[in-house]
Amino acid sequence: MNKPFQTPIVLLGARLLSPYIMVFGWYVIFHGHYSPGGGFQGGALLAASILLMRVAGGRTVAELQIKEFATTPLAVIGVMIYFATGLVAVAMGGYFLDYGMLPIPGMEPDWLRYTGILIIEVGIGLAVMAILVMIYDNMVRGEDYG
């Protein structure tokens, strides 16, 4: 948006809310095993907290929080976490994404699966957050056709 809502009140409100949303996002990701939630919902909440700052503060504030060029690597890392988890299972002789084969010592397959799900949820969360921010950034900046 070329003219963001840059009033101090809105910015203040956004700055107040944003960290709590972010914390809630992480909570949703990690508590997805016991209650509704998981990577996507948590990632979307994380993205929402960042987008809130971007909507309220414009580009200058946005740069302070997460730089635009950082979103692509974050998305790649998110996908990589998921992918690597699957590949490790293959390397240990199982099928792709067979968390029961993850090489974490001292764990039974059921707890390994518990851990595996947790790892991939974090990956999803990161990727979803980064990508939603990425889409927003690109959409706001627009295209230079002509």
Partner: peptide
């Protein structure tokens, strides 16, 4: 039993149908 996770949706999402 399989993943020690009470939320069945999470287990299905993250393990059984992880692909």
């Amino acid at each position: 039993r399989d993943a020690r996770t009470p939320n069945m949706v999470t287990v299905v999402l993250g393990d059984y149908r992880s692909i």
